[in-house]
């Protein structure tokens, strides 16, 4: 069942992205920014947590999930450390993804050439 829900929720989020790309003048880069910010805000309002409970990876793998990861880290750190948690929390949970992307990106560029 969790696979079906991941498929449906993840697919729906992507379909919304496609609608934005095809029906508005937004470029893919604009849609990505919009999605990560929406995820961060919905997370702050406590809504994204509900979507994650429903969709599992279907909610965490798409980019709004990254925004949720950023915000959830901030709130967690504020609870633990107070004011400075606003700063230290941003990458608290997201650092695995960011560091993985940088390191993997660099190594892949060492190993491969663009095919064009």
């Amino acid at each position: 069942m969790d696979y079906v829900l991941a498929f449906l929720v993840g697919g729906t989020i992507c379909a919304i992205g496609q609608l934005l790309m095809d029906l508005t003048p937004l470029t893919p880069a604009h849609v990505l920014v919009l999605f990560v910010c929406s995820g961060a805000i919905l997370s702050g309002l406590g809504i994204y947590e509900k979507i994650v409970e429903l969709g599992g990876a279907g909610a965490t793998i798409p980019l709004p999930g990254f925004g949720h990861t950023l915000t959830s880290g901030v709130i967690q750190e504020i609870e633990a450390k107070g004011f400075w948690g606003i700063f230290s929390g941003v990458l608290e949970n997201a650092s695995v993804g960011v560091v993985a992307a940088v390191v993997v990106g660099l190594f892949i560029s060492l190993l491969f050439n663009p095919k064009g």
């Binding site: 790309m21 095809d22 893919p28 663009p114 095919k115 064009g116």
Partner: peptide, 20 residues
């Protein structure tokens, strides 16, 4: 040249974007 123009005017050639 497709690739020289693409990387100068548009996106990196390996970026997975759809064209209108």
């Amino acid at each position: 040249h497709y690739q020289t123009a693409e990387r100068q005017f548009r996106y990196p050639t390996e970026l997975g974007v759809q064209k209108p």
